[in-house]
Design a protein around this nucleic acid. Structure first.
Lengths: 144, 144
DNA sequence: GTGCGCCCTTCACTTCAGTTGACGAATCGC
DNA sequence: GCGATTCGTCAACTGAAGTGAAGGGCGCAC
């Protein structure tokens, strides 16, 4: 229970590292605060988000946990239940990708296609990726 | 978000009504506080527990939620379980379904592409879908 | 090189979560 | 009946949660 402190910070940190606006850089603290403000619900100051990530403050309130979880698109249980955390971590990359709605569209509609077609589409995506100068490997296993 | 207040109080109240020491009377606030003290972890004053049940205070901190959940033998997520959480859980279901699918690869690699490219790919997927005689509209919201 | 802008960091301050202590209403033993 | 105990309720206080504003580093444009 003592490492619970470090644990929360680690989880927030992990979310920042994994859930990114576009491929590339992570969200800034200000951006997250801004997004929450825009969303209309409870807001969190950029400073406080930073403190949570660094582990300087652990023990946020229910509402703040909800807001943070909401932003990153994970259930609040992510911050409590380690079982749940592991399960979601495994899917985070995909989850993040799907938050980009066009990608979501593609995934939903690709579902049910024949393996052959899927392979062809995957190839095409890779080709485009190359053209746009994006790095090839979105790694299958991102874990430490 | 306003009924969020009532919601937490209702949940705590429900726990008191349901989880009882023996058949018969419910736990007193003091008893709960005492049990938590004995348990060694973070403690909660009897008064505060009362306030939470009455809805006078909503918005407890992470540690207190954990302690309370621990006492009543429910996961901390119990206190959060609202519409939003269920929605996200539903998404996670979808992800789990996609786990080993090639669709997963496509989604991951499509992430970060320019809107233009994404649109092109989406079009292509639709075309293939048509060719394979699949129905056009995969519903966006699987929920009730 | 210099100025501008973005971002992380720090700290003093404000606000609210959480506790303490007290009061009246039941319940029990004598 | 009447003190002692226990419970729910209330209000004033304390300390920690959470914020704002300013410092300081780093990259970019000019």
């Amino acid at each position: 229970m003592a490492d619970d402190v470090a644990s929360l910070a680690a989880k927030v940190d992990h979310l920042f590292q994994t859930v990114r606006p576009h491929a590339g850089r992570e969200f800034s603290f200000e951006e997250v605060a801004e997004a929450l403000r825009a969303k209309g619900g409870p807001t969190i100051s950029a400073t406080y988000i930073w403190q949570l990530r660094k582990g300087i403050r652990d023990n946020p309130t229910k509402r703040h946990l909800e807001a943070l979880a909401g932003f990153f698109g994970v259930p609040p249980a992510y911050f409590f239940d380690d079982e749940e955390t592991r399960r979601i971590d495994a899917e985070l990359m995909l989850l993040t990708a799907l938050r980009d709605s066009p990608v979501r569209q593609i995934a939903l509609r690709a579902n049910g296609l024949s393996p052959k077609s899927l392979e062809a589409i995957a190839d095409m995506v890779d080709r485009v990726r190359e053209l746009e100068g994006l790095p090839q490997p979105p790694p299958p296993t991102p874990e430490s």
